[in-house]
Amino acid sequence: MTANSTSNTISPARPSARPPARPGTGAWRQWLLLAAGALVLIDLYLIFQYAPTERVMGVVQRLFYFHVPVILTSFLSFVLAAVASLVHLARRSRAWDSVAYASTEVGVVFFTTAILTGAVWARPVWGVWWVWDANGTLTFALWLIFIGCLMTRAYAPDAERGGRWAAVVAVIGAATVPFLYMAADWWSGLHPERVTGPGAQGSLEREMLITLLFSFAAFIVLFVALVAERAALRRDEDAVEELRRAAA
């Protein structure tokens, strides 16, 4: 453990350096969570009541309002994790490490949801559960990289090294993204089996567009709220760990 990395946590010698309870500082996170909950409820109403049923695909098309925002939020989580990792490596900041960790963990949930909703939607529409086009391949690889980041932390000898290594994996992962996208795109171009599908549906009805845009907002707010909550929890875990070490 370097002296640098402990500078913004509780110092064992002076437990009063940071007051244990600071009422009010986390209030914005609770408001954000409440807002996310309200937005998701309204979103559910829009998706199942307000938006019209699509003529060709039927009810299953309503998955679109989940799948597309969730997948974009997943990619957002990867960008956030990679940027936070880079800042953590450059500055050795526990705060950025906890953001990277929270973004990875919440991102795994979003990627898993994206993959599951994609499969459930692809099956009735395309007849297969999964299509290895550029987007599918990229989603799957990023999901694996995120799981790898979490496992790197879990198997590291201590939290500090785990955070550093997971940051390295995330940055390397970000570096491979353009090549992976290109390789998967060329490769799937060799197998032109797909002609129709959710990507080929032309213009959206006004109600559909409103629902989609609202869904984007709801899922992004939900993502930010969950990451903020998880990052704060992570910092508390760090503080508890420091106290435990100081007591031992």
Partner: peptide, 10 residues
């Protein structure tokens, strides 16, 4: 393998 396979997929 868990780290290597996705990172070397391209």
């Amino acid at each position: 393998p868990l780290l290597f396979i996705p990172l070397s997929l391209p």
